Amino acid sequence: MSGFSRRRVLQSLAISGALCPICTALIGSPALAQSAGAHAGPHWTYEGEGGPDQWGELSPEFKVCSLGFEQTPIDIQGAIRAQLSGVSPMFQPLPLKILHNGHTIQVNCAPGSVTYIDGQRFDLLQFHFHHPSEHLLSGQSFDLEVHFVHKSSAGQLAVLGVFFKSGAENPGLAPIWAAMPQEETPETDTGVTISPADLLPVERGFFRYQGSLTTPPCSEGVLWTVFKQPIEASPGQIEQFAKLFPTNARPVQGMNRRFLLESI
């Protein structure tokens, strides 16, 4: 393949509008909530009975968890460096509406926060956390990972992933952790205002690939952006989440000849 042709292929893959039709079907369906691990369908877990190796057998609706070829998370390595037009989160302060859904801590977001990916607008719906990180970076796991789940007006899903490493206390996490429910609860409006932008890295280099939801039904056609630079959380903050969720991370999945792009 010539350099010019290869570049055209990479550009078209950067944000292919041909995300699978599942994305459109996700609008208004339980599958979108499932991106944060909400309850729907058969009981599933992260370990033991009903664990990730059994998800595809728990329900016909979960079959893609075991049969899909574009599953998330992945071990991020061997990326192709490409000239990508970038990712522009524009997050606004918002009321802290928090829930413990049995699988993670989730913050539901009021309208107004968006991310532009190659010029396409995606509205921020919610964000949630995993311990340890679901993605690996060249085989390395991080202490936490936050996923910002977005949807476009056309129904495409896009998720931004940010790693946490042990270090200084994170002020952006402080109000969320202070309100963190200790057991499964519905959404609670805490009356506190938070700034999701505080949970983004300063440097905005990233990796991009086509993947899936990381919980059942594992629907594919999700545009993933994972930032290279981790942010910090204190050992105490990491331990606080880990006590509630010792493991809520799906094991890495095969790349299966997908393109993994890295911003230059």
Rank of each mutant, 00 (worst) to 15 (best):
A33N: 15
S138Q: 15
G68Y: 09
P251T: 04
V146D: 03
S152F: 14
T215N: 15
M90S: 11
E134V: 10
S2Y: 07
D118C: 03
F206N: 05
A178I: 05
P217A: 08
P186T: 05
F227I: 01
G51R: 06
F206A: 10
Q210F: 06
R8A: 02
I76T: 03
P60E: 02
P186H: 12
I76W: 02
A110D: 06
A158F: 13
P251E: 04
L32W: 12
G28M: 07
S263H: 09
S133V: 02
E203Q: 01
Q253P: 04
K97H: 15
T188K: 14
C218N: 07
Q156P: 03
Q126A: 13
I74L: 12
R6N: 13
D143H: 01
F259N: 06
R8I: 03
E169K: 14
Q253H: 04
A168P: 03
N248Q: 10
S2F: 12
N248T: 10
A40S: 13
P196R: 03
T185Q: 12
A110W: 02
L58M: 13
S133G: 09
L94V: 06
R121S: 05
G191R: 04
F241S: 10
M1E: 07
W224V: 08
P52R: 07
L19R: 01
G78W: 11
F91V: 01
L96H: 11
Q126F: 15
L125F: 10
L99Q: 15
N170L: 11
V192G: 04
P171L: 10
A82D: 08
G102D: 10
F129H: 15
V9G: 00
V162N: 02
A36I: 09
G51E: 05
L136M: 09
A168H: 09
K243M: 08
A79H: 09
H150V: 05
E47H: 04
T104R: 15
I22A: 13
R8G: 01
P217N: 07
T24C: 06
S12C: 00
E70P: 01
A38V: 08
I98K: 11
H128E: 04
H135D: 04
E187K: 08
K97M: 11
C23I: 03
Q106W: 07
T188Q: 14
K243W: 04
R81A: 13
D118W: 01
L96R: 11
D143R: 01
M180L: 09
F163E: 00
A168F: 03
T104N: 15
I176G: 11
H39V: 05
P175E: 06
L94W: 02
A249M: 02
A242E: 12
I22V: 15
L125P: 07
T45Q: 13
E187P: 12
L157W: 14
E187C: 09
F127M: 09
T188L: 08
K151S: 13
E49K: 14
K165A: 00
G48I: 09
K165H: 00
T190M: 06
G155L: 12
A25W: 08
E232Q: 08
E262V: 06
I176Q: 11
I74H: 06
T215M: 12
F148D: 01
I105G: 09
S5L: 08
A31Q: 09
Q126T: 10
S66G: 06
L199T: 02
L157D: 12
A38S: 15
C20Y: 02
L261G: 02
P181H: 08
P186L: 06
K151P: 03
Y209P: 10
P111K: 01
A79L: 13
Q106M: 12
